Simulated assay, not measured.
Amino acid sequence: MNIDSIKFTDPPVHHQFPPLYENLGLPEVSSFVEQKYEFDFTVGKTKRKGNGTIRKYKESGQYKVQLTGKITGFGPKRLEKLERLLLEEVKERFISNIETETKARKVFHMHFGRNDRDK
């Protein structure tokens, strides 16, 4: 399996969560920077296309690649291998995009809890 090409489709987006959630240690409510990309890869003699996102969690500094959409014929092991390959290929360019970004796009996630319970 080889990654042939990668093309970023959107600029990096900064997702901010309220400080209330930051120290819980849960990645799903931790601030991160995310960027979408398209990629071409070869499996055997077959060329395929895919889409994905890469995230950098601000608090922990960890990176995570997520594939969007299904890739037919890929089980959990092959998907894991593809994600590892993508992380190696995309990480440096993603860091470069974050550093050279002139105007940051931000998304703020807020807490919208109810003040009073049903009476």
Rank of each mutant, 00 (worst) to 15 (best):
F74R: 15
G44K: 08
Q62E: 14
R78Q: 13
Q16N: 15
G61C: 03
P18E: 12
Q16Y: 13
R105W: 00
T68S: 09
D4W: 02
E80S: 15
D10L: 08
F39D: 07
E89K: 15
K81V: 01
K47V: 11
E34R: 11
R93T: 00
E89V: 02
K70Y: 02
I98P: 04
E99D: 10
E34M: 08
T102Q: 13
R48A: 07
L86A: 09
L86R: 10
K36P: 00
F41S: 11
S96N: 12
K91W: 03
N23W: 09
D4I: 14
Q66G: 10
T68L: 08
V29H: 11
N51A: 10
F32A: 09
E101F: 05
T100K: 15
P12E: 03
R93P: 00
L79K: 05
T72Y: 11
N115W: 04
E99V: 06
I6H: 04
I3Y: 08
I95K: 13
E88S: 14
P19W: 01
Y57S: 03
G25R: 07
D116F: 08
S96E: 13
L67W: 03
K58L: 12
K45R: 14
G50F: 02
R55Q: 12
H109V: 01
R78K: 15
D40S: 15
K106Y: 01
T9S: 10
V90A: 11
L24F: 05
G69M: 02
L67M: 04
L67T: 02
V107S: 07
L24V: 02
G113L: 09
V65N: 09
K45S: 14
N51V: 05
H111Y: 02
V65T: 05
F94M: 03
K7N: 09
V65K: 09
T46K: 15
G69T: 02
E59V: 03
K77G: 02
M1E: 11
S96R: 11
F8I: 01
S5T: 06
F108Y: 12
R78P: 01
R93N: 06
L87Q: 12
N51P: 00
P19D: 12
G44W: 00
E34S: 11
D118S: 15
L67P: 02
H109L: 04
N2A: 08
P76I: 03
F94P: 03
V29K: 14
L26E: 07
F94A: 05
D4N: 15
F17D: 05
V13T: 07
P76W: 01
V43H: 15
T102C: 02
T53K: 15
L85F: 07
F94E: 05
F74Y: 14
F108N: 15
K91I: 00
E59H: 08
T9H: 03
Q62L: 10
N2G: 06
K7Y: 06
I3C: 11
K103R: 14
